[in-house]
Design a protein around this nucleic acid. Structure first.
Ligand SMILES: [Zn+2]
Ligand SMILES: [Zn+2]
Ligand SMILES: [Zn+2]
Ligand SMILES: [Zn+2]
Lengths: 161, 161
DNA sequence: AATAAAATGTTATAATATTGCATTTTATCC
DNA sequence: GGATAAAATGCAATATTATAACATTTTATT
């Protein structure tokens, strides 16, 4: 099994299902409580491979008839999901996306298509080690790092020409 | 002459002066108008090696008795400065910092001390090329990229122990 | 000097995020 | 099982960051 690359057509329900399964497993291991609300937020985040803003998630929850939750509800769920490595926040977009490799410690590296917004998480060892070397050279102790690369995905480049 | 490393004690007035001089030169070359207001904003941004929020800049301008400018005033100046490569925006902090190498095209790479907030811009070729390779491998066309590494600067690490 | 373009001033408002406190749900202890 | 504590959620208000829309002023061009 190869992971779907997001750009390609794929059975996206599988992405959501896998994400939820992985999340349950990880939370169990961490002794963290993946409540119904948190699962709902996580599945909204996974509804596409595009980053989603907190207020967009809020609307989706409303639409689903879960009452009309207030912002803190969503932000708290997102905080929980981030703490448990299940979602990442993309600072340049004020938006959130499901983590592709939850459970493994890793920094945050993304390719973001400015056209279609499809965003893929990458886990480049050479990027990571370049960052590490760069920091070490300056005696800087890394706590966490984030890489956000904005550009055009293969599909959108083709559509252009 | 070696560039001050921000962590070390240095004559910071020189940083500000150099930044202003460089800015004038670049704007002249670009046919861009570095107005009094824009210079004021740029020097506020350079008042420390710490990223500064738009509203903080606004306050500094007020304190200086330039009247009480409104947010758009500052945001417009910051937009101008960014377009001309004189400041960078740090998305993870919603804050702005003077560019260390204006004039040369480069992506945005920073080491941010979460303790003292001192932030240094780095220009690591190995990071840049790792990013490039990583994107190419996925047929992703980079428009721009940003790297924000959060951790502890050498000074704050020492103070710890 | 007349005109157009660019920059700034001003007011209002949008978008994102947090604080503080009440209530409910879940876990823990006896 | 019932009492207690801890965690999660609901909810109202508000803080923070950023932009839109339009009037006025300044600067450049003719
Ligand atoms: Zn998918
Ligand atoms: Zn695309
Ligand atoms: Zn300095
Ligand atoms: Zn520090």
């Amino acid at each position: 099994m190869t992971a779907p690359t997001a750009y390609e057509k794929h059975d996206h329900h599988q992405c959501i299902d896998e994400a939820l399964l992985a999340a349950r497993k990880i939370c169990k291991k961490n002794g963290a409580r993946l409540t119904a609300l948190r699962e709902q937020v996580l599945s909204k985040v996974w509804q596409s491979h595009r980053p989603l803003g907190a207020y967009a998630i809020l609307e989706l929850l409303s639409d689903e008839g879960q009452g009309h939750p207030a912002p803190p509800t969503v932000y708290r769920a997102l905080d929980f999901l981030q703490e448990n490595g299940l979602v990442h926040r993309l600072a340049s977009l004020n938006a959130y996306i499901g983590c592709d490799a939850p459970g493994r410690a890793h920094d945050s590296q993304f390719l973001i298509c400015r056209h279609c917004q499809i965003t893929v998480e990458v886990a480049s060892d050479s990027v990571s080690s370049a960052l590490k070397t760069c920091a070490e050279r300056r005696d800087f102790a890394i706590l966490h790092s984030s890489v956000e690369i904005v550009g055009e995905c293969p599909n959108c480049q083709q559509a252009q020409s």
